[in-house]
Amino acid sequence: MRLKKMHPVAIMTSLSILVLVGAFLSIGVGAVWIPPGAIFNYFAGVEAGGDGYIIENFRLPRIIMSLLVGTGLGISGAILQGIIRNPLASPDVIGITKGAGFAAAAVIILFPSLPVIGLPIAAFIGAGLVTIGLYIFAFKRGVQPATLALVGIALGAICQAGIQFLTVKFPLETNAALVWLTGSLWGKDWTDVWLLLPWIVIVVPVTLFLAPKLDVLSLGDDVAEGLGEPVRKARLLLLIIAVILAGASVAVVGTLGFVGLIAPHIARQLVGNKHIYLLPVSALTGTLLLMVADNLGRGLFPPTEVPAGIFTAVIGAPYFLFLLRKMQKS
């Protein structure tokens, strides 16, 4: 809203350029620093040796993952804030990520011999189960946005209690689970990219088609119904889409928090409330946020890897306070 002087398309272009610059920096940053020359050589097809291997197997998949996950969580958060009509809604808060986290912790701890691929599947199912819970407890009672949010928070609290129970009961197995529960791009490779890519690529364009529905819904139920919008159906459809995006992202990288909360906020500051712009810009800001967090995690204390989830909180908290001051003034 504040930056209305710039056309949304111009903002999207500049953000895309920023993402590209960020991606380029990310290729160089890490426990092993790669000079720009080697990066150019790699993309020019010149043999780059060990640096080439690192770029190809670790840096690029992580960059693409921040793109996919940032997009998934950013758009998911924007949709949820739209249908719940509250700027504080996000996939973390309404239980989706916690559901995935509980399922993943249960699988890691109770079935340690399950093949690695079982983890994302279980996490995705966990997110799905929370949605079914949301449907049973919130939608059956007239699907008020407030009820939806509250039930989501409560389901999240139940899952959190379950996670705590498991980690305390089985301390030895907890190590692996904790890495997953803080959420990071550590150890992500092309397999993970291919696992997540289809979900994002198929679902994100659909959300753009649904953007006008979100605009209508955010006017309030009465107005939306007056405009001939079947409110309940639209809300359910959008909720499912938000769950798919967040669930798939979290299933692959773990319960990475705050991207889905912060990214849409920054986007709203840039392009306002029109969802056809808000959604793609949320995707871009989400990508940038995650990329910065991951870079800090890799580059700040090498060779120690700090989970990106901690840096999203560290970056997010001050922004959140800034937001608070703004809201108080208005």
Partner: peptide, 12 residues
């Protein structure tokens, strides 16, 4: 790096 999350880049 850490035993929990060793740096794959350094290893390679």
């Amino acid at each position: 790096g850490t035993r929990k999350q060793p740096s794959l880049e350094v290893i390679s």
